[in-house]
Design a protein around this nucleic acid. Sequence first.
DNA 1: CGACGTTTGATATATCGGATAACAATTATC
DNA 2: GATAATTGTTATCCGATATATCAAACGTCG
Lengths: 172, 172
Amino acid sequence: MTVSKTAADAAKVSRPVAGQDLDASSDDGLLQLGELSGLLGYSLKRAQLRVFEDFLRCVAPLQLTPAQFSVLLLLDQNPGRNQTEIANTLGILRPNFVAMLDALESRELCARMRSASDRRSHILVLTDKGRAVLARAKKLVANKHEARLIELLGPESHAALLEMLAKIAREF
Amino acid sequence: MTVSKTAADAAKVSRPVAGQDLDASSDDGLLQLGELSGLLGYSLKRAQLRVFEDFLRCVAPLQLTPAQFSVLLLLDQNPGRNQTEIANTLGILRPNFVAMLDALESRELCARMRSASDRRSHILVLTDKGRAVLARAKKLVANKHEARLIELLGPESHAALLEMLAKIAREF
DNA sequence: CGACGTTTGATATATCGGATAACAATTATC
DNA sequence: GATAATTGTTATCCGATATATCAAACGTCG
């Protein structure tokens, strides 16, 4: 879709805002975010992107994404669970969880084992390597990632932030 | 990639956690999020998904996504800007912004007009319809969406949350 | 002026997360 | 024992995101 209109053709567009020419091409300077700054969803998304970006940097030596880290953590704290249970509590759809597990399993961080009591389901277990990687990842996250966040916000604000986000995720 | 291991084949996996059989298949009850709840990135993402979901519901009558709403808002507050400027301040890559604008323009919410001073760039303008839709959207967002959030958190916590998220987006 | 590099919008394309439908194997229900 | 439900899986689609490349238009500078 190409455009043929010119600035002089401001027919239906109207309101060239008196004293604001379409050719005053450069008011250099940052654009006004305006009411956007008051939109919680906007700041939320922006902050989330930054935090994930930093998470990736901090844990880069272990080549773990936030999602993969969360799977390992959950497996460690909930042994004997199958794919559906783990995927559900992380909000991952079962079909999408398959490839994720394939990746983790191919790196020998976890393993699927057929349950003897229900031969449909796969019991998920961390391997020793998986536990080792998780332990190193936890340290990197705590010392490099979360530490920086706490330093930025202050410990009490950080705790309050966590509390509010959890509340939103839970009750909103 | 299929799996042939059985639970009895827990060779290298080890630590079946004494007293925790792989066949105790159902400890029904919610899984332990554990240290995941302390991970800011995790709560951040979860909260963001909830908030966007609610945003979509609230503004559904106008068929606007959060990204589209942010574009309209930005256009309104920064007239006379071109695609690159708007896309950059929203963190949208120029190639991806093209289709977004096509969609908004096909609905006659905004228009691209060739600048007389630089015939490469398109000056973006809200149409009257665009301004009308934006006005309605702002009301829906304020009265239905943000209002619910403020009710949940309380006004002062809501403000503090906004402040912290902005700080993360800005300084982290 | 004219060659050269840059910028702008656009196209094509790749990747990734997320969603649905469908299937075989297995289990549960009646 | 027939039927329904569950588990893991595949295929597929959609949306957001990322890069390379292009033509047209600009800026610079010899």
